Amino acid sequence: MRNTRTSMARRTALMAATVTAGLVLAACGNDSDTGSSGHDGHASASSSSAASSSAAAHNAQDVSFAQGMIPHHQQALEMAKLAAGRASSAKVKDLAARIEKAQDPEIRTMNGWLKSWGGTVPSAMPGMDHSAHSGMAGMMDSKDMAMLEKASGTGFDTMFLTMMVDHHKGAVEMAGTEKAKGAYGPATSMADDIVTGQTAEITEMNKLLGKG
């Protein structure tokens, strides 16, 4: 669970990373990277599967996965949308666009599952309460998000990448639990795609930070 000490440590690390990784990002800021994360094409298949088998067996883990991953993805989208006007690196902007392309359809798919199961659907953006979900793996709290919103240029690039690596690691952890304990085929399939795609993006982001 996240606590005040963890949040303070993250913000301290983010500020340090901004200084140490700025030159790496500046060097590649004008390059483009059109590679795919490998998980942006699965959402339509998941939607189709959900529509044709909405009455299929599911368990409490499947419900928990959808209810947790929806706000997790929503925060990733909010972070990614900031990149268009604040990032200086073309590679960071491209990555953010791919994150939006992959995760927005997944949110819609998971909303559909919860509605078909009669489960509670998490509130949609805008205006999500970040601190309300700060105990979830990889989630930023309101102070973290405020820092990102105030940043720009190479400082934003480094902060965005550092935060998104942590965010993706949390999603991979959550998806791993769904793969191990879930019963609903489309949900475990989406979880597998999240693990594959976001693990690849973590590697990509670490390289942009000069850690690869």
Rank of each mutant, 00 (worst) to 15 (best):
A57S: 13
G197A: 02
G138T: 09
L95F: 05
H72T: 00
A9R: 11
R86P: 02
D141V: 06
T4S: 15
A124F: 08
A51R: 13
M69E: 01
I70V: 14
G29R: 13
M205A: 06
S36M: 08
S131I: 05
S131M: 09
T4H: 15
A96N: 08
D192L: 11
M8L: 15
M136V: 08
S52M: 14
A187G: 06
N111F: 09
E173M: 08
K179F: 03
A96Q: 02
M174I: 09
A124L: 04
G112F: 07
R5I: 11
L25M: 12
A83K: 02
S53K: 13
G118P: 03
T20W: 10
P105S: 10
W117H: 09
H130V: 07
S64N: 11
T20K: 12
G176W: 07
A97E: 08
M145F: 12
S46I: 15
A45E: 14
D62M: 09
I99P: 00
I99T: 01
H58A: 15
M163K: 04
V172Q: 01
S36L: 07
M190W: 00
A55H: 14
G182V: 01
S142Q: 12
T199D: 05
Q198C: 08
N30F: 13
G170C: 00
K91C: 04
E173S: 15
T20E: 11
L161R: 03
S52P: 06
A45V: 04
G170E: 01
S134H: 05
A97I: 00
H168K: 10
N59L: 05
A57G: 09
M139R: 06
K150V: 06
T109L: 06
L14N: 09
E173K: 13
I107T: 01
K169P: 09
S142T: 07
V195L: 08
M128D: 00
G155M: 07
R10A: 10
Q75T: 07
S46H: 04
S54P: 13
M110W: 07
A90C: 14
H73W: 01
V19N: 13
L23H: 10
V63M: 10
G197I: 06
G68Y: 05
F65T: 01
S44Y: 15
A151N: 05
S52I: 07
L209V: 02
D166E: 15
G29D: 14
G112N: 13
A21M: 12
S46M: 15
D33I: 02
G38F: 05
S152G: 13
L82I: 10
D94F: 04
G35C: 04
T177F: 09
S46N: 14
C28A: 13
M128K: 10
N206Q: 13
I70S: 03
E204H: 11
S53H: 14
D166C: 03
A175S: 10
T162I: 00
I107G: 00
R11T: 02
I202N: 05
T154V: 14
S142C: 04
P105D: 02
D33L: 01
S142H: 04
